[in-house]
């Protein structure tokens, strides 16, 4: 999609910028991730508001998660989450076998250590989206084989 190329380039610049400014000052990797995550959070909040404008009220937490996996993911990344798992105690694992923002990177192990940079924004996106639907959570991501990745959502009980 046309817009998508532009978004991907912008996303790359975002990462470049955050990590570049970290070189000058004293900022470690964790702070950079947090910064990217926070940007994603704000964007997620805005997006979910617009995506859910015309939808019916959600039944429960699982219903919310399904919406994130299907509609939200499709709108943002043009595909659904491939697998959603839960332990029914507040932990959800969302698996994307071909995560959009990783597809431009080599599938080998070479850049595996850089993968977290490319996932931080999206973690924030999910957390922000959920937050605005009244679900407080912590979202982390992990990659073992590119371009597949797993997002783990831990619901924080209020």
């Amino acid at each position: 999609m046309a817009d998508e190329a532009l978004f991907q380039f912008l996303h790359n610049e975002l990462i470049q910028y955050v990590y570049k400014s970290a070189e000058h000052g004293e900022m470690e990797n964790g702070r950079c991730i947090t910064k990217l995550e926070n940007m994603g959070f704000r964007v997620g909040q805005g997006l979910i508001e617009r995506f859910t404008r015309d939808t019916a009220r959600f039944k429960d937490e699982l219903d919310v998660m399904k919406f994130v996996c299907k509609d939200f993911w499709t709108s943002v990344f043009k595909k659904q989450i491939d697998n959603l798992r839960t332990n029914h105690q507040g932990i959800y694992v969302l698996q994307d076998n071909k995560f959009r923002l990783l597809t431009q990177l080599s599938t080998g192990k070479q850049y595996l250590e850089h993968a977290p940079k490319y996932l931080a924004f999206t973690c924030g996106l999910v957390r922000g989206g959920l937050a605005n639907l009244g679900v407080k959570s912590i979202v982390t991501a992990e990659v073992s084989v590119m371009p597949a990745c797993k997002f783990q959502v831990m619901i924080q009980k209020m």
């Binding site: 999609m1 817009d3 998508e4 912008l10 940007m39 704000r42 964007v43 805005g46 997006l47 924004f121």
Partner: peptide, 15 residues
Amino acid sequence: KKMNSELFTLTYGAL
């Protein structure tokens, strides 16, 4: 497609 441009717009705003 429209949604995607909202993603872009909002991300740019965050930047």
